[in-house]
Nucleic acid binder design. Structure first.
Length: 424
RNA sequence: GGUGGGGUGGCUGAGUGGUCGAAAGCACUGGUCUUGAAAACCAGCGUGUCGAGAGGCACCCAGGGUUCGAAUCCCUGCCCCACCGCCA
């Protein structure tokens, strides 16, 4: 959420800044509601002040044994006035809140202009794109060849956009998770955390998936509004919801492995083949909380932490900065890491690293005590995938495939796989 | 699933209809004292919002309700603790 005060006072400036994201802020409506709110609120509060005063004097009069009837009549009149105006205020306030919770974060000035991912700006490339002296197979064919990747089975069990893995492939999938977690805890200073994979709606509001993007989520049936997590970002970031942390606890860095569940509504027909876009996938997520002045630098280092995984695995990739139109709802600035996929002869997203500034923190009331300030201040949050496990597996299969359809296991994974050098 | 007890400020914990945003203790901050520290003593110390300020308003798990007035009474929900049942 943006600072409501800023939205109030700099409405047009903010509306202009949001255009980069392709978001149209209804300035006229906002201003009109705000004007009404102000008047009504002043009125309600002054009526409340009067009521409180009279009620107090009723108590005193009663104690003194005086007649309270005239006072009662007076205060009853106030009460009915108050009820009427308060009802109007609540209505206006609810409408303002709806607008406020639905405004995306303001993109950073350095975010490039653009409407879609085609306008993202490449920052750098790493590694050499492999060349093959045989016909390249995609991960679906490679998996079918070894009989270790089964989409029909998954389709029978559940439906489309799920996968079943067997044997060495399942082992490598698991090894990737261990490798990523160990690297981030042992080399990058993250605390490992295990969290619920089912969350309530407050948590989703906190990180920004709700109220606008409910259709992207799997919602559980039941009395309570529970959802499957679309990313570990949701439970981990919400660890600090309604908390005030001391300055010396910052920065806080968490790494969390979790499954992620996404409905993929609106992506019919996209990436229907294979394991690129699934309803369920594993991800190792990096989440950090820090003082506002540290978040820009922290995003750079978090991106490097994610890049380290790709480098250690020897996977060619590039880093891009997302343009305004491709930026997520809550993000002020995002780097995507894209891994090379030989079968598609292109780079595909494997990690997304974002700075949310105080946008999520304001929604969550996640704060810290700045010793130099009198009041608690909002934290900054950043996060990024380190990495998406399923897509990493695909990238390894395709980049390290051999003419015979076998796959060379990256050196760093072998200790996690009993020394296995090749999947065949 | 059953029975009982609870959810109050950073923590512990008092408060069961009126001057309570809330006692007390701990923690924390500042001061006195001390060579320094500790102890002792004094003072300060929740969050949000409106206001230049004085101050107003709201917040005692959440949402409704009763009342002139609710932390306190009623209803619903959520959560926690104890015991019983069931269970990976």
């Amino acid at each position: 959420m943006l600072d409501p005060k800023a939205v109030r006072s700099d409405t047009t400036t903010i509306a202009a800044a949001l255009e980069k994201k392709g978001f149209q802020l209804d300035v006229a409506q906002l201003e009109s509601l705000e004007e009404q709110r102000k008047v009504l609120q002043v009125e309600v509060e002054s009526l409340q002040a009067q009521r409180n005063k009279r009620s107090k004097s009723i108590g005193q009069a009663k104690a003194a044994g005086e007649d309270i009837e005239p006072l009662l009549a007076e205060v009853n009149e106030l009460k009915s006035q108050l009820e009427q105006i308060d009802g109007k205020l609540n209505d206006i306030q609810a409408r303002l809140d709806d607008i406020l919770w639905g405004i995306p974060n303001i993109p950073d000035p350095q975010v490039p202009e653009g409407a879609s991912e085609d306008d993202n700006v490449e920052i750098h490339r790493w590694g050499e794109v492999p060349s093959f002296d045989f016909e390249v197979r995609d991960h679906v064919d490679l998996g079918a060849g070894s009989g270790q990747l089964d989409f029909e089975g998954a389709s029978k069990i559940t439906g489309s956009r799920f996968a079943v893995m067997h044997d060495q492939l399942a082992l490598m999938h698991r090894a990737l998770i261990q490798f990523m977690l160990n690297t981030h805890t042992q080399e990058h200073g993250y605390r490992e955390v295990y969290v619920p994979f089912v969350v309530n709606s407050d948590s989703l509001r906190g990180t920004g998936q709700l109220p606008k993007f409910e259709e992207d989520l799997f919602k559980l049936h039941g009395d309570q509004a529970f959802y499957l997590i679309p990313t570990a970002e949701v439970p981990v970031t919400n660890l600090l919801r309604d908390e005030i942390v001391p300055a010396d606890a910052l920065p806080m860095k968490f790494v969390c492995h979790s499954p992620c569940f996404r409905s993929e509504a609106g992506s019919y027909g996209r990436d229907t083949r294979g394991m690129i876009r699934q309803h369920q996938f594993e991800k190792v997520e990096l989440v950090q909380f820090m003082k506002p002045e540290d978040s820009e630098g922290a995003l750079e280092s978090l991106r490097e932490h994610a890049e380290t995984i790709l480098q250690k695995l020897g996977l060619p990739y590039r880093a891009v900065m997302l343009c305004g139109g491709d930026l997520g709802f809550s993000a002020a600035r995002t780097y995507d890491l894209e891994v090379w996929l030989p079968s598609q002869a292109t780079y595909r997203e494997i990690s997304s690293c974002s700075n949310f500034r105080d946008f999520q923190a304001r929604r969550m009331k996640a704060r810290w005590r700045n010793p130099e300030a009198k009041k608690p201040e909002l934290l900054h949050t950043i996060n990024g995938s380190g990495l998406a496990v399923g897509r990493t597996l695909i990238a390894i299969m395709e980049n390290f495939q051999q003419a015979d359809g076998s796959i060379t296991v990256p050196e760093v994974l072998r200790p996690y796989m009993g020394g296995l050098e090749r999947i065949s």
